[in-house]
Amino acid sequence: MHHPGVSYEGKSVSRAARDPLWSRVFLIAGALVFLGVLLVLPLATVFVEALRKGLGAALETFANPDARYAIWLTLLVAGISVPLNLVFGLAASWAVTKHDFRGKSLLLTLIDLPFSVSPVISGLFLILVFGVNGWFGPMLNSLGLQIIFAVPGIVLATVFITFPFVARELIPAMESMGREEEQAAVILGASGWQILRRVTLPNVRWALLYGVLLCNARAMGEFGAVSVVSGHIRGETNTVPLHVEILYNEYNFVAAFAMASVLAILALLTLVAKTMLEWRIQRLQQQVVLERTRHRDPALVGPQP
């Protein structure tokens, strides 16, 4: 991040305004050590441990049907919950930013609820509602539907946990866009759907993509809530994070870390994509600033070259 005018290399900053050398070295070194111990080292350990007995041993993990099933289940759960939350998030942020209604602040608070509630509690809550002894348990049982300790429960837990990601990214983006463009479109005869597709979405597409990315990363990595509702049945209700835990508890370290590196690689890819998106969004914002400054340019009336 560059701050105009506060460049440390630049001579524009007076000596007095600078921190002394020792303090800068101390702060930067401190930050690096912190990052190294808490972030880089654990991440490296994952890969090192996975490859301890060679690449072949690590790859063998993925020959196991339970491991393959866990990966497939994780993709399935993410594949269901991300699109669902894309729609929910879009609807919620559209409602919150483009309309005024009673209970708007309540809705905003509710959107954030999954962030503030411990995932374990969310899982327990689902058991309370859909479990065999829960509110809807007997009814679901008589219909032959199983939600808890089955895939639907895992999907529900994941949807709940990842609900805020898309909405949280979209709300500020839509807010900064204002409502005038949509109003102009209405007056020109556009329907709600046409406005969403042609005016609103193109303007927030990067924020939307960013939200989907974060939502996906969390959907694939969620442990707590999924752990409570899954029942840990191998080959049936084990997602990748749950499978890692089981393998680890069985002292099968190579397999555990090999599975974990799948998640780690996913995290790294997400990070790269996120950085690229941020860079892109920043450029768009600079363009907006540029636009605002140009706003004051004198314009000439009459034919122009």
């Binding site: 005038e180 463009e181 007056i187 303007n203």
Partner: peptide
């Protein structure tokens, strides 16, 4: 009706 907004509200995309 036709309307022109204070800040024009052109579709920026």
């Amino acid at each position: 009706v036709g309307m022109v907004f204070q800040h024009y509200a052109l579709f920026r995309n």
